[in-house]
């Protein structure tokens, strides 16, 4: 970690922050992830699919393990498994709402099995607690150049698709029956969004890990929706928050002895609690 601490000279601090290649990679990948997670997260919260997001992140566990096993990047394994799971969930029904108990139980069983499978993979072939740790809590400081490229490709593609289907997706999310009657392909959109969500989850897991995914994929959107009911403003707020949590978390971790994931989640949690409190106080 750095030899010098932070000063009040912002430029000098930035130079310090970005003097090492791993920090440059961390900021690049982190920013890309935050941008996509901010947009996708707004829809996740609007559609009430936080549970689906969490499920996808955990189903990715054996995927990451398989990536390690096959000596390809774990993020590629993650992408493959998450997208497959998204197609499975989307094919079965609208989504995995917690209210739907039978389905939640099915998904829960698959979830447990895939986690067990991932554990086995890691034990047999990688044998490293390090790998599991990175998967559970993220490994943003260990992002390779190739991961940055994959992240860039996924983020650009995800962004483009969400920009293209954003409006019909909002329509289908808040008023599916009317949207369907007006010619919006509600079911196809639902599956399409799950696939984008799977891609987002796959690259977000690199940064904050599967256990902390709430911080980047749910908290910014949830906070933004507390603050505003305007879709455009909400989307923008969600992205700004998500980027702010990531940048702040990275900087705080760099200048201290504590892990990045802790700071990102703390910032996210703090913002969410603060806005909820604000609305509660106003009401």
């Amino acid at each position: 970690m750095p030899e010098q601490g932070p000063s009040w000279d912002v430029l000098a601090d930035l130079q310090l922050l970005l003097q090492f290649h791993f920090m440059q990679n961390a900021y690049m990948a982190g920013t890309l992830v935050a941008l996509l997670a901010g947009v996708a997260g707004y829809f996740v919260v609007l559609r009430g699919q936080s549970f689906a997001a969490h499920t996808l992140s955990q189903v990715g566990f054996p995927g990451a393990a398989a990536g390690v096993l096959l000596h390809v990047s774990p993020v590629l394994g993650l992408i493959a498994f998450c997208v497959a799971a998204a197609l499975g969930i989307g094919w079965r029904g609208r989504d995995v709402e917690a209210g739907n108990r039978a389905e939640a139980a099915t998904v829960g069983s698959i979830l447990a099995f895939s986690l067990g499978l991932g554990l086995l993979f890691f034990r047999l072939y990688a044998g490293s607690a390090q790998g599991i740790y990175a998967f559970l809590f993220g490994s943003i400081l260990g992002i390779a150049d190739r991961d940055v490229q994959v992240t860039l490709a996924v983020a650009v593609a995800g962004f483009a698709v969400l920009a293209w289907m954003g409006r019909p997706l909002i329509f289908a999310s808040v008023d599916p029956d009317v949207a369907e009657a007006r010619g919006v392909p509600v079911r196809a959109l639902s599956i399409g969004f799950l696939v984008v969500l799977a891609l987002t989850v796959a690259i977000t897991v690199q940064i904050v890990g599967t256990l902390l995914i709430f911080a980047l994929l749910v908290a910014p959107g949830a906070t933004a929706l507390q603050l505003t009911a305007r879709p455009a403003v909400g989307l923008l707020t969600s992205v700004v928050l998500s980027v702010a949590f990531t940048w702040g978390g990275l900087a705080l971790a760099y200048f201290s002895a504590f892990p990045v994931g802790f700071f990102i989640t703390s910032l996210a949690f703090g913002a969410y609690v603060a806005t909820r409190g604000l609305r509660f106080a106003r009401a």
Partner: peptide, 12 residues
């Protein structure tokens, strides 16, 4: 507003 253009794709 969604009743007016919610079925349109892309940014506007």
């Amino acid at each position: 507003r969604l009743g007016l253009d919610g079925n349109r794709w892309g940014l506007s």
